[in-house]
Write a protein that binds this DNA or RNA. Structure first.
Lengths: 340, 340
DNA sequence: CTGTTAGCGCCTTCAT
DNA sequence: ATGAAGGCGCTAACAG
């Protein structure tokens, strides 16, 4: 049963030619209803399955898109991928997953193998913005393979992107803290070479400025996106004089760590100290002391990235489209930043 | 720049034949070192990329595997996929993701399109065990395409599987509750047609029996795997006379809902009531009242499923292997079931 | 409406 | 060590 039946097998059985079979199978109008029916029936009878590989080789379209993310086991990326898959599945595309683990070498390698596999497009969230991968990315653009960045983008000619308005997210989160009465607000940020963190940071600063609050540079530092980093940050912050009375963290995980450390040190949240996270990870709303956070609507982001890809692939004009979609972030204000 | 260079282009440039180029590129021993070097250099110069589609068509190997899951945006499935990807990436395989959303139609359709795409194997967690998909699954086996179930399996001839010992997980979790002094333990289970829930349920019963505790059938019922379901379950359970004093939930989400509802009703955890979940979702350890849970080592499971696939694909004998790997669950005992 | 031909890009016999 | 030829499975252009 290992043997696959091809259109030639069907043709032979029906004593017609493979081309006719192909036409019947593809609803080509130039064919008699009788033969079409006959072909379809025998195809079914012989358990014929179209070989998409051959089809792809011929058409130059693989019907596969590659998705490159730092890792898949984070709620954010998994949700984006879900969005992409749901949008692209009805269009007949398959989604190939690649992880980089923030390693640029892997990123470059993934792009290369995806191109070799003849994917029809690449959707990616870059790991970092060093120049190493510029060459390969330019290669994608030159080959006219649609490339779409989501969330973590870098500035590149001819590349579309879907992001949220990180500036606004940072701004609004900080504003919320200010409204709650926080006067000395700290900010935990990420790799400044990534636009998302830069923008959130800018939003943070603007909110302070707009409210006439002074920016204390000592209150702002770069942390990893994990619980321990948040704890360590609080350790340092509380040793300052004066210590801050609020944190806007660009990472929910760091926010969680911060909260844990604060509580262990007897600091009352939200009465004495407010915390605002970013990402709206599921756990932020599950906590007894639920954590305020900025939602990035990852599902929407994925769907949108897929839509931009579809637009691009269906763009018959020879004009290159460079589309920048910016989604609006949504604040989820919870207990960690709500004083009655 | 859209034009791709092929081995023919290289051949023409070097005034040799495509076959020679192919040999050089594939490290075929029957070729002079000089030509090999020459070919590799010009290939590089001409920015040649191997077309894996053509290669696949010729070899009958696509180097793609399909992974079918109910949904990707759950920590468990995302982690399994991560494991699969990490294990298969070094072997040159790409991972194609398909979601079913627990819909059998989608499941069947996904299997079919994956077969059409000539994947070299399918790794899946089935949605439910009705007979509908039996035919298609049998088709996969008949075609000698390696098929591996992970977590949610069904009994099928010739299909390998990787699961955890759900019975043991259920048994040990329940034992823990008993050791903490719980006398009337309830159980929230899932779709009984799925082996995982059946086995956890069996483990639960066995633990009760081994400890001489009576099984109250009213304490056992099927719930969805979400927070609300857990809350509703507690509502019903507390209205019973006598009410239970512990819950073993087959879902972390239901366990969370149960805890929320219990606390709102003033029931003290773990003093008056203990709760044990299943799945070890990230949030279970993040909570202030951390939730005890059974870990399913999804990363391990994914890697193991991938390894089984590799064994199968590299099995040159014509003997069909049917391997059943059962991983050992690990208890994470936390505050929700720890009385001092 | 159907058959013939050719080729997508690659690799592997078979010959030389 | 290299060339010639054929085919993986499919479809599109060209005939008729």
């Amino acid at each position: 049963m290992d043997q696959k039946t091809t259109i030639y097998d069907i043709a032979k059985r029906l004593d017609i030619t493979a081309a006719t079979v192909s036409r019947a199978l593809n609803n080509n109008p130039k064919i008699s209803e009788a033969t079409r029916k006959l072909v379809l029936e025998t195809a079914d009878k012989m358990n014929y399955k179209q070989n998409r590989l051959a089809q792809s080789l011929r058409s130059g379209k693989s019907n596969n898109v590659g998705v490159i993310v730092p890792r898949i086991d984070s709620n954010f990326f998994a949700s984006v991928i879900r969005g992409i898959e749901e949008e692209l599945h009805p269009e007949g595309y398959h989604v190939i997953i690649c992880q980089t683990h923030e390693d640029e070498k892997r990123e470059i390698e993934n792009i290369t193998t995806l191109l070799n596999a003849q994917v029809d497009g690449i959707l990616m969230s870059i790991s970092n913005v060093s120049k190493e991968n510029d060459h390969v990315i330019k290669n994608v653009v030159d080959k006219n393979v649609p490339l779409i960045f989501f969330d973590r983008k870098k500035k590149m000619e001819g590349v579309s992107s879907v992001t949220i308005n990180d500036f606004e997210g940072g701004y609004l989160a900080t504003k919320n803290l200010i409204e709650q009465g926080c006067k000395r607000i700290a900010h935990l940020t990420g790799d400044q070479s990534l636009e998302i963190f830069e923008h959130r940071n800018n939003g943070f600063k603007k909110a302070l400025a707009d409210s006439g609050l002074e920016l204390n540079e000592n209150y702002v530092f770069q942390t990893k996106s994990n619980v321990d980093a948040g704890r360590q940050a609080v350790e340092k912050l509380l040793s300052m004089n004066p210590p801050p009375d609020g944190i806007f963290s660009s990472s929910d995980f760091a926010a969680l760590g911060a909260i844990q450390e604060l509580r262990e040190r007897g600091v009352k949240i939200p009465e004495e100290f407010c915390v605002f996270g970013f990402g709206n990870e599921p756990f932020t709303r599950f906590m007894e002391l639920s954590i305020s956070s900025v939602d990035q609507s990852p599902l929407e982001m994925g769907k949108m990235a897929a839509k931009v890809f579809l637009e691009q692939i269906n763009n018959t004009d020879n004009i290159k489209i460079e589309k920048k979609v910016v989604l609006t972030p949504e604040l989820h204000i919870r207990k960690s930043s709500t004083r009655k």
